[in-house]
Design a protein around this nucleic acid. Sequence first.
DNA 1: CTGGCGCATGTTGACGTCAACATGCTACGG
DNA 2: CCGTAGCATGTTGACGTCAACATGCGCCAG
Lengths: 346, 346
Amino acid sequence: MTTTNPTEAPAGRRRGPSMADVAREANVSGQTVSRVSNGRTNVDAETRERVLAAMRKLGYRPNSAARALRTGRFHSIGVIMFTLSTYGNMRTLDAIAVAATDAGYSLTLIPVPHPTQGEVSVALHRLSEEAVDGVIIIVEAHLLDETDVELPPDLPVVIVDSRGRDRYPVVDTDQAHGARLATEHLLGLGHRTVWHVAGPERSYSAERRRESWESTLRAHGAEVPPVLVGDWSSESGHALGLELARDPEVTAVFAANDQMALGVLRAMHESGRAVPDEVSVVGFDDMAESASFWPPLTTVHQFFGEVGRLSVEALVHEVEAGERRGTTLVSTELVVRESTAAPRRD
Amino acid sequence: MTTTNPTEAPAGRRRGPSMADVAREANVSGQTVSRVSNGRTNVDAETRERVLAAMRKLGYRPNSAARALRTGRFHSIGVIMFTLSTYGNMRTLDAIAVAATDAGYSLTLIPVPHPTQGEVSVALHRLSEEAVDGVIIIVEAHLLDETDVELPPDLPVVIVDSRGRDRYPVVDTDQAHGARLATEHLLGLGHRTVWHVAGPERSYSAERRRESWESTLRAHGAEVPPVLVGDWSSESGHALGLELARDPEVTAVFAANDQMALGVLRAMHESGRAVPDEVSVVGFDDMAESASFWPPLTTVHQFFGEVGRLSVEALVHEVEAGERRGTTLVSTELVVRESTAAPRRD
DNA sequence: CTGGCGCATGTTGACGTCAACATGCTACGG
DNA sequence: CCGTAGCATGTTGACGTCAACATGCGCCAG
């Protein structure tokens, strides 16, 4: 049944005191309450005090729905992303959350549990009904490309870690730079060439890292060995690492993220190939744990905080000033630890 | 008219078509549009089609602020949490996000960047203005205890991984069970006693794990060695592990999470103490990476997905049915890998 | 043939807030 | 002594939606 009982309370739903109640209590008009609530200065000190007292007494909380309806602003940023399970996504989200809070926005998470095109469409459609002023999208590019659902045309959007289709501002780590750093580090150590454990086929960042690794090898006249394709997980790194360990030619491996690098490390240990004495391994991300891997991992540091901060900044700028930004690249840094060394002289 | 400047655009703010526009286009009343928009059945098929066509043509998107104002429901769940940087928090958040989406709610993140009491107060206060139907709180218990800011009294709340102060429903992993599992596993292997690398002093879960480790030792008549206190990070695990490695008495270590266990592993390697031959190590969490640690880590598996699912379920139940749930404990499971073995016979 | 019921659809008003405009009072210059 | 500028405060209406009630039509039982 819905409601038959006449003694029933307001359907379990709270309706707190409104401005009108506060106004009555403080003996002023609703508008004055509004002014106090919004921190306007043109209110007499004594009146303001009276209003604040009334607010406290009644436990007044502004109704954000009414405010949003009136002003057209929600003060909330939507974030569309896949599973939080990759280290990078999580760190980026964390940074976005902090930056958004600082900018006076809250965050609305719109997860896309299964990265299929259909799900993305659903999420984007869902977005239409969400109460957000703008959206930060962190999904693999190809899914966006293939998705026919249009984003609401007038909604500010910033793309992170992906391609902007020439239509949206992009904030991304300089993947190419990082991969070059890693590859050149290994080459500089004297390795003949560098093997690559890549991220999944259709990942934009995996693709960029792979391209850059390849072109760096070519630029240095090094042979380009076949690419091994993983899925970001340490499991896949482990499986692929086992293959690499079997080949005595392999002396240097660049994994497209730290988790796969960890798997490679394990594979080398299991196969009795010493790191870094026989095989050098470099990762990408610089997870908090990477320094505690065995051996501590040489890797490419990503400034996730910066990516998050810049994407919020770009979005808020578009929301508030109506001006769209272009592409921003965040630099990377090589962190040399103990998983890399010069190849053994045979 | 309202605007003074005739050439002025709508102040950079989008105001999409409203129900009234759709109604005009479809030649029906606004109420009929509302009915179609909400999927009511009492609309003639032909009329519904006409309305849907008009919606598509105009690109109509329901205004959630107006809807929320009218209905008093936001269809959003707030999540208050510290930094996402611990593995457990992130996994829990992920699960909450998925469960919330399935239940038809979106997620509003209210981060508390710095875990000081003041910040928590700010976050809770901020909450007052957020457009949420209920809140899931994932912060250390003591900060809640010390916080004088009251939660809005009529707002449904569920506490995760913390203590409910007898006022709110709690969903938590059965910390005590997990710690007992770990300790008994080590004892069962024949170790004389088990050393403990604990989480930070004031963490509720750290406290529970530590208590349970201690009482399990006592129950088995084993000596209780001094506790080493870390901060969840692998860095701290490493530092503490170095101390443990120096003491030849130490043959079994239970770390309160996998990240600290990783640090202990590294410390043992650096100190030349073989794992598991000389020292056994057990963690807590079962991170995705733990199987790739060297050696693969024996650890206590937490069902984060279950915790997230149950907390959303409890909250939604309270929001929609007005009934409050009690405390729910989620079980744990020991995953035995290769970081544990019987102590060496000297 | 008529009263009334079921169904599709329309009309009205209120949710809480805030911008725009209106009012009324004080102070100060000419 | 009056005009008006400047400030605090009040009044009005609209943002978009939906619940409640109202209307009008077809159909069937009596």
